[in-house]
Nucleic acid binder design. Structure first.
Length: 720
DNA sequence: CATGTTTTCCG
DNA sequence: GGAAAACAT
């Protein structure tokens, strides 16, 4: 094995636990670095800080480090609210939250160390590719400064490296993974209680920066979010309790509904770590026990289903950890050859909810207006995106990232790969779901469509999910003129099916050609050139949106260079100006507000929706240089700073820490570190080519790691 | 009640 | 597309 391993400073646990200045553990000062674990309850890093003495609680805002994945507007709104909440609760226990604006997290942390005299740094693990690399590097830097660094699992039931199949290999499909999680020999760690009080480190020389999460143009839209959501860990806990004691029991019977009233609505809370997934798990399992004793079949079923969705979140981290480029490249190798349709007008129609398929359009408008979508509808719109429009899934993923309140890189990457059929257990590649049928399945009475597509509000249920079949007289009576008032289907499903067949044929052809080229040793030619280049998110995206919304939105002036693709959400005004009151299209807002559970606003003014094609050929020039490539380069640069081509594990106090070093830097710097990953073949490909199908990931690069695993069955979260 | 037929459900 | 479940005969 190539020696050294990145964890040079680490070695064994003892090596890095040498505290500097204070001999007395009791009085040492710890930095507790909050990231996506914005809670006081069941927060192992915070608990460790409190236990070892004085605490300096820190949040660092360094969005530039996120590259292409600068958080979207609604996501930033949530973050700002959540931080505010965290700050107040920390203060009530005795210490403030220090917030810092930074371009380089590591050096900011070192500055804080110097300003406060801290000797420990505690934080909880993250599993997205950027964090894996950054946190590892940062850990080494701080250790080199003489700081004790410990990190913990606060986000998962089990760390990714704990869950393996009988051959000690990571699972490549969800079902066995989740079965294994549910039958582990030890339970997930029990949730920790919040500290009773926190002794504050001296932060007088460490002032907070004021963090700015929204600009003027965003304020109005953001104000409306507060109507529907309450960020913050205390509120997350309330939401959890409300769900577990309420809708959970009906979860299984309600899963055919498109509306949000029966979902947990926990995902944004979970994304920011406002609630511990282990707490969710334990609570839900208690319920399961009770219902199982009562012989409540439906209740048990509900719990299993709900836990499965928790499992998917868990799996998304697992997946990201094992395949650090999962947000950028398909897992199945042959998918690299799929000829995606790079058509920005399709993309635009999809974003605007003007595809001509009511269920899809309703979903896209809900997403646009509220930052929220029921999981079912996410599947509908994304599957339409990939299978019917055949747009590159990464565009869709990026749009979700920009618009969803619970945007989550790992979950969304998994979701889009699942939909795109790029996972071994993903959806069938060649079958297209028909939005018309799904419409009658998830929205049998058309209520959902009518709520979000006022222009179809008067169409009878019989035609609501396929207006193109409706007789002219019916359309007239409903005030619909297809093609002007509401679009005709952007693509016929039948046409989409044949087009998909053709595309797949082409994909297999290219794949075969590439493989042949490889075998002839002429991989230069086809192998390289047909490697899917990173797909740039269309440049004008954010601009178009601005233009189209300009009537009602205060907008950033044209010359401003937006550093990120973002959405501007139309104002949601409580109005009946557009739709007559007697039509009952809109839910009474007061009633909605009276509900104690957070609810998506149900009233929207769609006056702003463009009613005719926006004739706009001129694409605004915009410097949107933040593309996925940018991320890749960043990742690679970070990786290149550690020289060894090996990966290994390092056990440190407070946790097992993944240490990730890349394969030796290749000359193809534009590629992902795991670019040589052959991915997994389809079944047929797999049989033909049994060697190359293995999931090559960085874990397999290191034989040393294997032996480590065998020797150590440490529970990483066991602290104290 | 067994058997054939249609529908539903897939992570 | 194939298994399981619901439905029909």
């Amino acid at each position: 094995m190539p020696g050294g391993s990145g964890g040079g400073g680490g070695g064994h646990g003892g090596g890095c636990s040498i505290s500097s200045n204070s001999g007395n553990q009791q009085s040492s000062i710890s930095i507790v670095w909050f990231r996506r674990d914005l809670r006081l309850e069941d927060n192992p890093a915070l608990a460790a800080g409190v236990r070892s003495g004085d605490v300096v609680a820190v949040f660092i805002w360094a969005p530039e480090e996120e590259g292409a994945y600068y958080p979207g507007r609604v996501s930033r709104w949530w973050l700002s609210q959540s931080l505010h909440h965290l700050d107040s609760s920390l203060r009530s226990l005795g210490t403030p939250l220090i917030t810092k604006r930074s371009l380089d997290t590591a050096s900011t942390l070192i500055d804080i160390v110097k300003a406060t005299g801290a000797s420990n740094l505690f934080f909880n693990h993250l599993y997205d590719p950027l964090s894996l690399v950054r946190d590892h590097r940062l850990k080494e830097l701080l250790i080199a400064e003489g700081i004790t660094v410990r990190s913990f699992n606060a986000d998962l039931l089990y760390e990714p490296w704990e869950v393996n199949d009988e051959n000690h290999c990571p699972f490549t499909t969800f079902a066995p993974f989740w079965n294994k999680c549910l039958s582990m020999p030890y339970d997930p760690a029990a949730p920790l209680l919040p500290p009773k009080r926190i002794s504050s480190g001296n932060v007088s020389r460490c002032p907070s920066d004021t963090l700015v999460f929204e600009d003027e143009s965003e304020r109005a839209s953001n104000a409306l979010l507060a109507r529907a959501w309450s960020p913050g860990w205390r509120n997350a806990d309330k939401a959890l309790m409300a769900f577990v004691n309420g809708p959970l029991i009906e979860y299984s019977v309600n899963r055919k509904k498109a509306d949000s009233t029966t979902t947990s609505l926990l995902s944004p809370h979970l994304h920011f770590g406002e609630v511990s997934v282990r707490k969710v798990f334990h609570l839900v399992r208690m319920k399961q026990l009770v219902w199982s004793n009562e012989g409540n079949k439906a209740g048990e079923e509900s719990v299993n289903l709900f836990l499965k969705s928790i499992g998917l979140r868990e799996y998304s981290r697992y997946f990201s950890f094992n395949h650090p480029c999962s947000h950028e490249r398909p897992l199945l190798a042959h998918l690299r050859f799929f000829p995606w349709v790079v058509d920005e007008s399709y993309f635009k129609a999809w974003r605007q909810g003007r595809t001509g398929y009511p269920l899809v359009d309703a979903g896209m408008r809900e997403l646009w207006a509220t930052g929220w979508l029921h999981d079912r509808i996410r599947v509908v719109v994304s599957s339409f995106f990939v299978k019917v429009l055949q747009l590159p899934w990464r565009w869709g993923m990026k749009y979700f990232w920009d618009t969803l309140l619970d945007a989550d890189l790992e979950s969304d990457a998994l979701g889009w790969q699942y939909i795109s059929g790029t996972l071994p257990d993903g959806r069938d590649f060649d079958r297209i779901d028909n939005p018309q049928f799904e419409g009658y399945k998830f929205d049998p009475n058309g209520e959902y469509v009518r709520r979000w597509l006022p222009e179809l509000a008067r169409l009878p249920t019989e035609w609501i999910h396929h207006p193109w079949d409706a007789p002219e007289s019916v359309l007239q009576a409903a005030g619909i003129e297809l093609g002007s008032n509401y679009p005709l289907p952007i693509i016929e499903i039948a046409a989409a099916k044949t087009r998909l067949q053709e595309a797949l044929a082409e994909m297999w052809q290219l794949e075969a050609a590439s493989r042949a080229a490889m075998e002839n040793g002429t991989e230069e030619g086809l192998g390289d050139s047909s490697d899917v280049p990173p797909i740039d998110f269309p440049r004008e995206t954010e601009m178009e949106i601005d233009h189209e919304r300009q009537l009602e939105l205060p907008r950033i002036n044209n010359t401003t260079v937006r550093r990120h693709a973002d959405q501007m959400v139309p104002s949601m005004t409580i109005t009946s100006s557009l739709v007559r009151a007697d039509e009952e299209v809109f839910v009474d807002v007061d009633n909605a507000a009276a509900d104690s559970r957070p609810e998506v606003p149900s009233t929207v003014d769609f006056e702003s929706q463009p009613q005719r094609e926006v004739a706009q050929a001129g694409v605004q020039p915009v410097a949107n240089n933040i593309t996925p490539q940018f991320t890749q380069n960043r990742l690679l640069n970070a990786l290149n700073s550690t020289a060894e081509s090996t990966s290994t594990w390092t056990e440190r106090e407070g946790g097992v820490v993944p240490v990730w070093s890349p394969p030796a830097a290749s000359s193809r710097s534009e590629h992902c570190p795991d670019d040589d990953d052959p991915g997994i073949g389809s079944n047929s490909y797999l049989q033909r080519h049994s060697q190359s199908h293995q999931m090559m990931n960085w874990r397999q690069l290191s034989p040393s790691m294997r032996s480590w695993e065998v020797e150590n069955t440490v529970q990483p979260n066991a602290i104290g």
